[in-house]
Design a binder for these strands. Sequence first.
DNA 1: TTGAAAGCGCTAACAC
DNA 2: GTGTTAGCGCTTTCAA
Lengths: 334, 334
Amino acid sequence: MNRRVTVRDVAAEAGVSQATASRVLAGNESVDPALARKVQEATRKLGYTANVMARALRTQHTGTIGVVVPSISNPYFISVVEALEGVLAETQRSLILCDARDSPAIEADRIALLLGRMVDGLIVIPVSATDSAEALRSASGQRPVLQFDRYVASAGTDFIGTDNRDGLRQMIEHVRALGCESFAYVGSRATTSTAVERLEAFRALASTPHLSEHWELLGEYNVDWGLEAGRRLLDSGALPDAIICSADLIAVGVLTVLKDAGVRVPDDVKVVSYDDSMMGRITSPTLTSVRQPVEEMAREAIRLLDGGPGQSSARKCIFTPQLIVRESTGAEPE
Amino acid sequence: MNRRVTVRDVAAEAGVSQATASRVLAGNESVDPALARKVQEATRKLGYTANVMARALRTQHTGTIGVVVPSISNPYFISVVEALEGVLAETQRSLILCDARDSPAIEADRIALLLGRMVDGLIVIPVSATDSAEALRSASGQRPVLQFDRYVASAGTDFIGTDNRDGLRQMIEHVRALGCESFAYVGSRATTSTAVERLEAFRALASTPHLSEHWELLGEYNVDWGLEAGRRLLDSGALPDAIICSADLIAVGVLTVLKDAGVRVPDDVKVVSYDDSMMGRITSPTLTSVRQPVEEMAREAIRLLDGGPGQSSARKCIFTPQLIVRESTGAEPE
DNA sequence: TTGAAAGCGCTAACAC
DNA sequence: GTGTTAGCGCTTTCAA
């Protein structure tokens, strides 16, 4: 646990000034090739790596962006992180990740942490449409901030998301085409923009004038809620023709309960879901699910972030998702 | 995007020296209550938050530890991160997470990044038993470093892990008790300590003098490899009585292929796995899997890290895992 | 091209 | 109890 090796050490070893060493390390300044080589060698010999914090203190940027997700155990969020990581790697940058554990307080804390560590920008999937606003707003006063997937209007930051309404439309048209006329919606409580938009779209689309009844079960974005909701559905007596789940995590729970009760999917009831995460490919049956174009969204997110703060007002960029049909609505096993 | 507000600003606003302001902010020094109040007010009025990097540059610690995992999409690693996060939260600390994307080069890079950001310590699940050594060794010269789950002996750091040999013993004894006599092992190539230990244990335990044949399929820790291995098993003609998988991710792939081929688990073949991650609870059938005591391991990890570098030599702390029996070896559906 | 020196925002000696 | 000052490791004027 030796003292860190600093530019000063490198400079001494190479027999040049600190400034020269720094120039060589930066690469872009004009330095005598001979001296440059000496510095390179010293660097290698001493195993020098720059202290990012000290450098950042000076330059005000770090080549890292901070990412805060509501829950690290949601595979959809993980896929977002991986996509962002890929895009950043193209420009030699990296990301540091924090988990808000579904708590606005922890989220605010992590945002402050990242800001204090001088990330060049922040990408946040907000925990709450209301309680996340303040932290986002105050952060956006210091660094470019972009909301991803979920939108908090009052935060006043740029936003990348998808058309949840259209996603729901695709789900419902698909099962209607299969003959379904009654629907249950199993989603999360309306605490996020995605939850609100999906629920409203469901309400608008699920019932037509002359037919179909529908019902709604609202909880959280996790497997346990899916299990619970599945049980309630079963206890209520009659099942709908189709169960519309607002996330794969939830659908997984629902599917499990259905299976245990001997209900056959898709024969007895169809199940459609949202996210198209890895989970939906390992369940039995596999899940028909709405895929969001995560890679493209990630690329656009970094582009916006790099563009600095929105010129005048916050920019919104909405992508169109696409339904992927699998066994839970009757696709043949691959 | 205003200029940051600094202690200097707060001090000026409160009409005291920078040092006094800093003392008040630190809290533990003795300061005239009247002045203290002024500083508090100025802080609030200006919306001051300390710059963690500047502070760290001075104090050499940050209240954050860095965690590097081989792959963020492996739910077992995610469970480790969540456990660590919980333990750190108890002492108002937090963690920043980096994904090595299964590459020793990226891993080295992330370790340097974290070190440059002055984390107080590093917990690493190494990507490779050989290629991760250098980065770990050099990091351990600067900060306390602890290896978790996988061990790189030459790195010379402390280690927290589980007894993989015993895990395998439990798996095999369990299926033997169920009458299985021939086994296939589907694991990852021997590039990590866990892969090596599990494979060796399998070899030592799977064949007894008078009966049973066995075979080995070695690939990666992911679902695709499980799919591939499952296909090979099927193509080879006869199936073993039991398939021993070295990770849930792999078992999930194997199970999928088996299901598609109409092979019944556990009737036709038993499947046992390792990790007891969430995945194993959503597959059909659910997976019998070896659970590692992640919470306790996390707590011990932080304890070791806090204890500073190993007094003399590297400390190793080995926990005992436990087999959880589920449907894939015949447990009744909950 | 190179070096000396200032300063990013903060804390900790050391003086008063 | 409070202020002055040095310096954490780095980059970047400004002179030479």
